[in-house]
Design a protein around this nucleic acid. Structure first.
Lengths: 210, 210
DNA sequence: TAGATTGTTAATCGATTAACAATC
DNA sequence: TAGATTGTTAATCGATTAACAATC
């Protein structure tokens, strides 16, 4: 389980494995082989076995994988067997959308506060969570042992917010601002570049790529 | 410019090239070499030259690349030299966030209508754009030659909305529902799986990956 | 036991990097 | 012209796929 050996490609496939295993579990499926998973996911059976064996031996020869067990293992591998205390910075429409996304609560991301610099929204509530003054961000993060900061502010304020989150001691940043943030290596960064994604779609349309 | 030869990795880098070239242009930088771009972007100079040469010869030996020209070329390659008529399906917080994201307008994605199935919001306006009844979606898409449909509905309704958009004749779908949609090959699909992204962040935090 | 399917090593493929001739 | 930097071919690296022995 050496970090240095885990490629980004695998990291991107793991949540997808989890999603499909969750569906199978809901359908009451008890057992699945790498071949069946291959048909479902579109990865080769070989790749699926390789991916899983990066983290351990979860199957049984001649039988396959127990869905319940594999789902639990992948949750553990993904770090979804714990709670993450989370704050959302920027209480605009996007920040509200993220905060409302009740899916997050189900898997342990607890949003404890929102932050904004607009006096008109400070003190209001979004989905029962209070909007604080962004001036209090660093202290709040430190005092409440916040794990993750979600950045939903405009591009120009994003780096400064990131610095504040890092100073407060977050372990990870989920960034929605269209900028490549500078973050120390001890903090994990995942950026969702919506405009990049839209531009990739534009490219695919132009070049007729499915 | 054979489609079959363009790897997904390049498609994902192109919008990033565009972003940085835009910044350089705003700063008034006239000329840049692959080596300077390399320091800025963190890709090797060799990769940058390879990527660009997939689409043509945009530089000048002994000199480098003209920022203005290269920016324009990449816009053209990405298909950002035209207008895309766009509809957003699902007028919840996420749909509103996308509709408000005025950045999109700048580069030619014109949102002409929103759609929802909630009678309480049908007829209202979001960012000056009217919310229509989703029952009218297929006709609207067909009658107005809509290019792109953005799916901001819950998981369970997403495939049906996608089918309707395809029936209406969209060229691309930008999907935010946490599901892998089934779409005919003639239509391009770009999915933003927010939960997958968050789970990848969780993984990175657990495994201390920057 | 025989059949099935994993875990794992070996082979292949594709993407990235290095090198350098072409040329501005 | 000399120096710089591209465009492009060749070498390397890493990820995916194939093959098969281990074993349930």
């Amino acid at each position: 389980m050496q970090n240095s050996k885990i490629s980004n490609a695998i990291i991107r496939r793991l949540p997808r494995y989890r999603r499909y295993l969750g569906h199978l579990q809901n359908k009451g499926v008890k057992k699945i082989s790498s071949n069946e998973l291959s048909e479902l996911l579109g990865y080769t059976a070989s790749q699926i076995r390789q991916d899983l064996n990066t983290f351990g031996e979860f199957g049984q020869q001649g039988y396959g994988y127990e869905v319940d067990k594999l789902y639990k293992e992948i949750n553990r591998i993904l770090g979804l067997d714990r709670e993450y205390k989370t704050v959302v910075v920027g209480a605009g429409k996007l920040g509200q959308a993220i905060s409302n996304h009740n899916y997050f609560y189900k898997v342990g991301f607890t949003i404890t506060a929102l932050f904004d610099n607009n006096p008109a929204v400070i003190g209001t509530k979004v989905n029962d969570v209070e909007v604080h003054d962004v001036a209090e961000l660093e202290d709040y993060v430190r005092d409440n042992n916040i794990d993750i900061g979600v950045i939903c502010v405009q591009r120009d304020g994003a780096q400064s917010i990131a610095d504040t989150l890092v100073a407060g001691g977050v372990k990870g940043i989920w960034n929605f601002a269209p900028i490549d943030l500078e973050i120390p290596d001890k903090v994990s960064l995942e950026s969702v570049h919506l405009s990049d994604s839209l531009h990739a779609l534009s490219f695919m349309i132009k070049h007729k790529i499915p």
